[in-house]
Nucleic acid binder design. Structure first.
Ligand code: MN
Ligand code: MN
Ligand code: MN
Ligand code: MN
Lengths: 218, 218
DNA sequence: ATTATTTATTAGTCAAGGCTAATTTTTTAT
DNA sequence: ATAAAAAATTAGCCTTGACTAATAAATAAT
């Protein structure tokens, strides 16, 4: 598998995650920041390698083998992110781009040793679960903050958007993975929401932000 | 700079290290395990970028800028090797291939942090000096073991060949970086040599091996 | 049920980095 | 000084992964 193939497959995997039955060419193009024409080409190739089921004009489904490969790349990506934050003191908004490169280093031994060195972490700095070497992920039931009701409580366990802009914003307002929250108010007009963080800090945010914060309800 | 350009430039740098005034197309092809035709193409390209001075049919000289770039890659390669050995418990014969990939990760912050994390190491696992961030290398005067005379003494400080085959052989016979040695005998016919290691172990080796062991004389 | 619009694919081009075969230049040997 | 050998370059081709423009298929709108 080439770096490009790994990146495409990972994108397709992520796009199919949210229960979508089939992923469209345009979806992939958007995610990969390439043109649909380039995607068509790559889909044909990944189809031939049986990483995806590809029916022209009808989008793709990832195969079991494709999922296995994608999860391997996801595993590497997230382990490297943990390394960068835990060992090299990167901020959580600085790791994504570098991990995007590191995930393509080819060395099973490296990943096995890295995993051990990091003490077999189960989650990356953004709260996303790290697949084990067999591709098994232990997923907790998470709900987007904007979907919670007034008075419901829970804990921030992950973010959906790993962009520096978003993460820096969270840092600024004091939202972080592990924080306990309670929904104080929701504005129906625009979906904005007010929450209490760690029983002491009031935080008001737009729906756009809330959508990208994932909660483990309690 | 692409990965390929970095690899070529590093090869040219290494080939010019041994005081060679100019590096030939065939030299580079051998080092890079590519065909001379491919090399000609790349030399033209590196020439245009002024990383090398390229006079057709007369080989190349590396420029100051080229040397700077190459040393940057060498620095990254060796820092990663230290990481793999010191932190991930790789053997010194297992690191080269992986470092060959890792050295191309583009992130100045990563290298700066890695350097700090490793405590600013000065030498890699093969005894080669690690250039600092400005490309400065502190070179110690080293001599190949086969060039030493009977009764001369010193310390193994580096190996010239980093292949797994060679390093595993050294492991097996008990030669290692830091070992104190004394030349006991030299056979003129084939250049083979017998040494005493750490004042207790006799070691007989062919010239081929001795050429690849570098000594700091004392 | 047609037509219009959106979505996707194909055709053709490009740059990077390889290769082989043919050619040219330099070097070595007679 | 010339011929032979070696070294290097060029020409032409291939694959990967992009792109634009042209076309085709599927979907939405009348
Ligand atoms: Mn990537
Ligand atoms: Mn992440
Ligand atoms: Mn390399
Ligand atoms: Mn080394």
């Amino acid at each position: 598998m080439t770096t490009a193939e790994e990146n495409y497959l990972k994108a397709i995997y992520h796009l199919s995650e949210d229960g979508k039955k089939s992923v469209s060419t345009n979806d992939v193009a958007r995610e990969m920041k390439t043109k649909p024409a380039s995607v068509s080409d790559m889909l044909r190739k990944l189809g031939e390698k049986e990483m995806i089921e590809y029916r022209k004009y009808y989008g793709v489904h990832i195969t079991e083998e494709g999922k296995r490969m994608a999860l391997q790349t996801v595993r590497k990506h997230r382990l490297w992110e943990v390394f960068l934050v835990d060992k090299l003191n990167f901020a959580w908004d600085e790791v994504h781009e570098v991990a995007e490169e590191l995930e393509h280093i080819q060395s099973p031994l490296l990943i096995q040793r890295l995993d051990a060195y990091l003490n077999y972490p189960k989650f990356d700095p953004h709260g996303d679960p790290i697949p084990d070497e067999f591709g098994d992920v232990k997923a907790k039931p998470r709900v987007a903050l904007n979907e919670m009701e007034i008075d419901q409580m829970g804990q921030i366990v992950a973010v959906k958007d790993s962009s520096a802009a978003f993460l820096k914003y969270l840092d600024k307002v004091g939202a972080y993975i592990g924080a306990r929250i309670k929904v104080l108010d929701k504005v129906e007009f625009d979906g904005s929401i007010e929450i209490l963080v760690d029983q002491k800090k009031n935080l008001f945010m737009s729906k756009e932000v809330a959508v990208n914060i994932l909660i483990l309800q309690s």
